[in-house]
Structures are given as C-alpha cells and as structure tokens.
Amino acid sequence: MAKSLGRHLIAELYECDEEILNSVEEIEYYMKEAAIKSGATIVTSTFHRFLPHGISGAVIVSESHLAIHTWPEYKYASVDIYTCGESVNPWIAFEYLKEAFKSKRQDVSEYKRGIFEAIGISENSLHKVEVK
C-alpha cells in the first residue's frame, strides 16, 4: 500500500433524516463530534443554513478538515473527511456521521493524498509535527 500524507473520504449519505439535515445546530454538533471521535483537534468551524433548506459547513482541524453539504428535500448529504498524519482515523468520523444522520444507504471512497513516491519523499525525510 502506498504511503501518503493524507486520507480523503468522499461520502454520499442517502435516505437520511431530513429534519437533522435541515438543522444547522445539529449538523454542526455532529460534525464536531465526528472530528473529536476520529482523534482530530478542532481549530474552528463555520456552518450556514440556506433558505428554504440545506446546510453547508466545515470543521477545520489541525489535521485538515471535515466538510458537508445537505439537501434535506432529497434526504441526502455529501461529506468530505480529509485527514493528515496517522493519529486520526477518518473512518471513525464516517461511521459516526452515517449513524447520526440515520442514513439508510451510503457510498464512500477513500483517496490517498500526497502519495510519497509521487511527490518524491521518503518516510525517513518526513518532519514530525506536534499538535497542540
């Protein structure tokens, strides 16, 4: 398996609870909880409710970000979970969010970002970043 700087999950959540998907307070809460449960360190967050419906938002973490766009009228949410380093597990965030939104069906793909070989670095040359 190729070593990389980051892991990026692109998730499609179908047949979700439309009331949750239209509540900016609930979406922000669940996205922050997903970040914490995955082991990430929250830096800031911003969320916006559109009229008549829908939420967009992001949680910025020291290890990258979690972003969401919801379409309550279709019971659908698109979620990006991008994490760098080895201390955070994006799959924990995904599992938490699919349960929180009561998604009955999902499609998710993982992409490696910053593949070592492609950017010309070796594991021995990596700098260690301390998260505070």
Rank of each mutant, 00 (worst) to 15 (best):
E123M: 05
E123W: 04
S109C: 05
T70F: 07
A100C: 10
T46W: 02
A67P: 02
L97D: 11
H127I: 06
G114A: 08
A35M: 11
A100D: 07
I60S: 09
E12M: 08
F50L: 11
I20M: 01
E19C: 12
S56R: 04
L13I: 14
V129M: 04
F116S: 03
Y30V: 07
V59I: 09
N89H: 08
T83Q: 12
G6L: 00
N22K: 13
L13P: 05
L66F: 06
H127R: 00
R113D: 04
K32S: 14
E110T: 00
D17Y: 09
F101Q: 07
P72V: 11
E123C: 01
A118L: 11
P72A: 10
I81N: 01
E25W: 04
A67T: 09
E73K: 14
I42L: 13
A118T: 01
K32D: 10
I68P: 00
E110N: 03
Y30H: 13
H69S: 07
Y30K: 03
Y74A: 15
D80L: 01
L9C: 04
A118R: 10
E28C: 10
S109M: 14
W91Q: 03
I92F: 08
L13H: 03
I68E: 02
K75N: 15
L5K: 00
E99F: 04
H127E: 12
M31E: 09
C84W: 07
E130G: 01
E95T: 13
E95A: 14
Y96N: 12
Y30L: 05
Y76T: 13
S23R: 07
Y74H: 15
N124M: 00
S87Y: 04
A67H: 03
I60K: 05
D80C: 00
T46I: 12
G57K: 01
